[in-house]
């Protein structure tokens, strides 16, 4: 029973990683760049929803929508101002810019919201107004799964399915895949590559906002660096699953969360991150393209 409970908390954490990783992987797939500022968009989403609930008194779901809207705009602006001018620049320049954007966001948050951590009002608090726990009790109360965990896992599955349908079935989604393979050929088809990249950033940033709200709802300390570690973990998850692959990001995120939770529970809290990255290295040694990364031979 104990194991199950650790496993579920791992899946729940992994679901947050997966949602972030999906944003990472989509942006990578299309813009061929690692958007290291992605983690900080999570933090911005956290603060926006925090302010909406604490200062404006909005309900949680409305705060979530507001955070998504703000982050979507933020994503488009970051892409347009920082990355678009570097479209034909060497990838190292783009990478350094992304790191710069990351620091910029963190320091702006520090200016506006100060360094002292905020206590985040969870989307579903641990107990309700009557003092009852907001959790699903199974096996006569031996296994308790909080509603926020259930919501997190459900959101992740819904997002993953929605993205799969979007990229597989819609015209815009197919155009994105075309851009991710060959921007020149995509333009020859009449696809506006710049608009497509913008849209991808918009989607990825909206997902980051969702991840921010869910993350802070489970781990309620919010500060300007809140997004960095989950951002790096999610990047790891995306590479682990095969960067550019949507099911890969989903699988990578879940596995990473589970490995981390189990390592914390059974091995050592301090070593958990070390173990996570050790597993990543081993997987990449065996499968350099990641678990689901594909290799398509080119014909000449």
């Amino acid at each position: 029973m104990e194991f199950l409970s650790y496993l579920i908390s791992g899946i729940s954490l992994g679901s947050v990683y997966a949602i972030i990783a999906l944003g990472y992987t989509m942006v990578y797939g299309i813009a061929k760049m690692l958007n290291f500022a992605h983690g900080d968009v999570i933090m911005v989403g956290g603060y926006i929803s925090f302010c909406a609930v604490s200062y404006l008194g909005l309900p949680g779901w409305l705060a979530l929508i507001l955070a998504m809207a703000v982050c979507t705009v933020l994503g488009i602006v970051i892409e347009g101002l920082a990355y678009k001018p570097l479209r034909s620049a060497p990838s190292l320049a783009v990478l350094i810019t992304a790191i710069g954007v990351s620091y910029f966001l963190q320091n702006t948050a520090l200016l506006i919201w100060k360094a002292a951590p905020k206590v985040y009002p969870s989307l579903i608090p641990a107990t309700n107004a009557q003092g009852e726990v907001n959790a699903l009790q199974l096996f006569h109360g031996q296994l308790s799964i909080s509603y926020i965990s259930l919501l997190t896992m459900a959101s992740c599955v819904v997002i993953m399915i929605a993205l799969t349908l979007f990229t597989g079935k819609t015209k815009m989604g197919k155009a994105m895949r075309a851009c991710s393979e060959d921007k020149g050929a995509a333009q020859l088809m009449g696809i506006n590559v710049n608009a497509t990249i913008s849209t991808t950033f918009a989607i990825g940033s909206a997902l980051a906002a969702v991840a921010g709200v869910l993350l802070c709802s489970s781990y309620p300390t919010l500060q300007p660096t809140t997004g960095s570690m989950p951002g790096i973990k999610a990047f790891t998850a995306a590479v682990f699953g095969g960067i550019g692959s949507i099911p890969g990001a989903f699988l990578g995120g879940l596995l990473l969360g589970i490995i981390e939770a189990l390592a914390k529970a059974y091995i050592s809290t301090n070593l958990a991150n070390t173990i996570v990255f050790a597993v990543l290295i081993i997987v990449l040694l065996v499968k350099p393209a990641g678990l689901l990364g594909k290799y398509v031979p080119e014909k000449v």
Binding site: K174, R177, A178, E181, D182, G184, A185, L188, K294, V296, E298, V300
Partner: peptide, 11 residues
């Protein structure tokens, strides 16, 4: 029709 075909290989 570009040189080297440039079809979308993964589609």
């Amino acid at each position: 029709v570009p040189e080297g075909r440039r079809v979308f290989l993964q589609m």
